[in-house]
Amino acid sequence: MRLIIVSGRSGSGKSTALDVLEDNNFYCIDNLPAMLLPELAERTLLTSELLHPNIAVSIDARNAPNQLERFPELLAGLRERHITCDVLYLDADDKTLLTRFSETRRRHPLTSDTRSLAEAIEDEKTLLSPIIDLADLTIDTTHLNLYQLRDTIKLRLLDKPEPGTAFLIESFGFKRGRPVDADVVFDIRCLPNPYWKPDLRAYCGLDQVIVDYLQEQVDVIEMYNDIYAYLTKWLPRFAASNRAYVTVAIGCTGGQHRSVYMAQRIGEALSKELSNVQIRHRDMVPSNEKHDA
């Protein structure tokens, strides 16, 4: 049995997450009372026709506060029964959540005559703190559209090839914000920037012309060696501490050239040393799409 618990603040993408899981053969339940988790697991384990059932449930601030407070105890009980259980927490910054509610004109579940939308969004984080603290995987959806969120959930939760720690090596651009869900962040904006070469600007860090240019730079080679040495030493220790997911983010200014090159090269090298290494380029626009535009 595999159980995925989806939580997060309203407007962060929980419904999208459940839709993705349902499309991938999970039986999904929205707004499950937290106290029913043990009974759900018990009934599923006793159902003989479901040999390897996949279940996803959403538990959020619509639960009673006293039930959310008991979440750590309930989760520990599930894992004591050797149930494979992932806790996925989705979130976005307050400004983004406010904008999403304004655009959809939905009512926040915690708003009232005496509580504004902004106050409800802030209070929701406090109510969900018992789940936040125990999340195996946190995804910041601030800069993700619907399709990017679907792809991210599939990559992190469903494309994990085997048990153990899943490592994500991710490139990003600082001008779009640092990934708040990253465990380790490297800033490589000090490296030579192909953007300032007019004949290279339209390409991305996966294109051979960019690879050739960056591999000729002494600073790039030194940075690669230092990052690779650090990660090969410390990522196995993350895994030894029973972490289910670890995200390493490598950032440059725009997330198009240097960080893409570095994340791709680091990810490919680490995949020879570690299991479950994934690579993602958050802000990259492929050069063929630029040329088409």
Rank of each mutant, 00 (worst) to 15 (best):
L32M: 12
K175Q: 13
A17H: 01
R178C: 14
Y213G: 08
V87G: 07
Q217D: 06
A92Y: 07
E170L: 08
F26I: 09
H108D: 10
T165D: 01
A41G: 07
T16I: 10
A166E: 03
K95D: 13
L50Q: 11
D93G: 01
I29Q: 03
D199E: 14
R178S: 06
M223K: 12
A239C: 01
S12E: 04
A249S: 11
D136H: 14
W196I: 05
S287N: 01
R189P: 11
S116N: 00
L110Q: 04
L168G: 01
I29K: 01
L206W: 03
R282Y: 08
L51W: 00
N25F: 06
Y27K: 07
R105S: 02
R9K: 12
W196E: 01
R282C: 04
Y228A: 03
H291K: 11
E162Q: 15
N24H: 15
I279E: 05
R43C: 09
A166S: 15
R156E: 15
R107A: 05
Q278T: 04
V184G: 03
C204N: 13
R150A: 10
D60K: 12
R100M: 10
M223G: 08
D91L: 09
P198Y: 02
G177D: 09
A17K: 00
F71N: 02
E216H: 07
I250M: 06
L51T: 12
N276Q: 04
L98E: 10
T44P: 00
G8C: 10
H52R: 08
P286N: 10
L78E: 02
L200W: 02
R282T: 02
E42D: 13
D159H: 12
C204T: 14
L127A: 09
G251D: 12
T232I: 11
L21E: 04
P72F: 10
E22F: 02
G254C: 02
R243N: 15
T232Q: 06
L149N: 08
G255Y: 08
V180M: 12
Y89G: 05
H108R: 12
D133G: 09
L157E: 00
H281R: 08
V87K: 01
L117H: 05
C28F: 01
T99G: 03
A34I: 14
Y203D: 00
Q264I: 00
D292H: 10
Q67C: 04
V185A: 02
P72G: 14
D219R: 07
V57I: 04
C252H: 01
Y224I: 09
D151G: 04
K175N: 14
V220G: 07
D183A: 15
L117F: 12
L18S: 00
R70I: 03
T253V: 01
K14D: 02
I4A: 03
Y228F: 13
A293G: 15
L270K: 09
Q208F: 12
C252N: 05
L21A: 13
E42V: 06
L78N: 02
L127P: 09
V87Q: 06
R237T: 15
R62M: 11
L270A: 06
A240T: 02
T165K: 00
E162M: 13
V260E: 05
K233F: 00
S48T: 14
Q264Y: 00
